[in-house]
């Protein structure tokens, strides 16, 4: 497993050597419960390069969200080594190095769409005219330019999640962390948001770590797919995707896509076999 995850940078990134956005070595995370400590992540080794789109996939309780939260400094690391942009997660968070998209949009209902997107900039102390300009730009990126004066509840679920993506882009982060952002949406909305996200990633070149339950979603979006298993949370395999870019929904009917999805399903099944 170590050879797989600590492998050399993919050829695509070969021009920028040593450009590691995330480095995790022998990462362990334990949770204290009432009776006994539970191992949420065990001996995780992962190396994410600039420009990667990494999907974390696995059954519930496999620690994929925990890994994402550890990177974001929302969950403390028990032992091991974790670096984000060469800094500790804590320093990285203080430097506002990443944007985070949650499972739910988490929009503040009393703020308009525009003011939801300016929220992180307000907290960072940016001047009003600058932050409004920045927010408008990001709203345009997710295709919601005309909805800036609406309130969240006046938007559909998919639009709300796009607002939250625009908000995550506020600090122009080089790293985007997404925790099952489309999990609560219907299949059709999810497809269109996947296309949106793919285009956005292509345009910005942002390193993205994406937690998901969905095999087609992972295959469609990723450059690499990290397959995890539960109890304890471990990395089973890392699957490279060499599907051509840019991708459109049509790619899902190609043989290459189907083969990759099949591989992924097999890998996930392996993780379940000893249950």
């Amino acid at each position: 497993m170590n050879e797989q995850t600590l492998r050399e940078p993919a050829p695509r990134n070969a021009s920028i050597p040593n450009d590691n956005v995330i480095v995790a070595e022998n990462l362990n995370i334990m949770f204290d419960t009432n009776d006994h400590p539970i191992s949420a992540l065990q001996d995780v080794n992962l190396n994410v390069q600039r420009g990667d789109f990494i999907s974390l996939i696995g059954p519930s309780g496999c620690g994929k969200t925990t890994l994402l939260r550890a990177i974001a400094d929302l969950t403390p690391v028990t032992s091991g080594h974790l670096r984000v942009n060469g800094m500790s997660p804590h320093t990285a968070r203080e430097a506002r190095a990443y944007g985070y998209v949650f499972q739910a949009p988490v929009l503040l209902p009393w703020r308009t769409v525009l003011r939801n997107v300016t929220l992180p900039l307000e907290i960072a102390g940016m001047a009003k005219s600058d932050r409004i300009a920045c927010a408008r730009e990001n709203l345009a990126l997710v295709g919601l330019k005309d909805f800036s004066m609406k309130f969240p509840w006046q938007l559909s679920g998919g639009m709300q999640q796009r607002v939250s993506i625009a908000r995550a882009l506020s600090f122009k982060p080089s790293l985007l962390l997404m925790d099952e952002p489309f999990g609560a949406l219907d299949e059709i909305t999810r497809d269109s948001l996947n296309v949106h996200l793919h285009d956005l990633w292509r345009r910005t070149g942002m390193t993205t770590i994406f937690v998901t339950h969905s095999i087609p979603e992972a295959v469609f979006l990723s450059t690499r797919i990290v397959v995890m298993s539960a109890r304890p949370g471990r990395i089973l395999r890392v699957i490279e995707s060499d599907l051509p870019m840019p991708r459109s929904l049509g790619i899902r009917d190609t043989a290459a896509f189907t083969a990759l999805a099949h591989d992924l399903r097999e890998a996930l099944r392996d993780g379940h076999s000893y249950d």
Partner: peptide
């Protein structure tokens, strides 16, 4: 919890957390 996490990702200080959330 998610709203609190959101504010944490912005490295929000106590005062801002109070005023904004």
């Amino acid at each position: 919890a998610m709203q609190m996490d959101l504010m944490r990702t912005y490295n929000t200080k106590k005062m801002s957390l109070f005023v904004k959330l």
